[in-house]
Amino acid sequence: MVESARANELDVYEYLNYLLTEIPNSDYLQQPEVLEKYLPWSFDLPDCCRLSHNYKKCLK
């Protein structure tokens, strides 16, 4: 799970924290398709789970 989060450029701590707080409150036992929005490649993940890359532009 950790390596999958890293491969999808997620903040591992924030992603695991999000999963452990949100999944128990979801209705995943009656609707297993709900779990798809928690996958590391899902576009439904909040921005706090994503790594922010601040690259400086090269000056010429």
Rank of each mutant, 00 (worst) to 15 (best):
K37C: 03
L59N: 11
E14T: 06
C49A: 02
P46Q: 06
K37G: 05
I23M: 00
L10F: 12
K37H: 06
P32F: 07
P46D: 00
N17H: 12
R50Q: 13
D27Y: 01
L59V: 10
A7S: 10
S26Y: 03
L45Q: 04
L29T: 11
M1G: 11
Q30W: 02
M1I: 06
Y28T: 11
D27N: 15
C48V: 14
E33V: 08
Y38C: 09
I23H: 01
C58R: 10
E3T: 15
N8I: 14
P24V: 01
D27S: 13
P40K: 08
L45T: 01
Y18R: 00
H53W: 12
L39C: 10
N54W: 12
L39E: 09
R50L: 09
K60T: 09
K56V: 05
L39H: 08
D44A: 15
S4I: 08
E9L: 10
Q31N: 13
V12F: 08
E36R: 04
K37R: 15
E33Y: 12
L16D: 00
N17W: 09
E33L: 13
S26R: 01
Q31M: 03
Y15N: 03
R6N: 13
E3H: 10
V2P: 00
L29V: 12
N17A: 03
D27A: 08
L39N: 02
Y38K: 11
Q31K: 12
A7P: 01
L35I: 14
R6M: 14
K60A: 07
K37Q: 14
Q31R: 10
D11Y: 09
L16M: 11
N8L: 05
C48I: 05
Q31F: 08
L29W: 01
L20N: 10
S26D: 08
N25F: 10
A7G: 05
N17I: 03
K57S: 10
P40E: 00
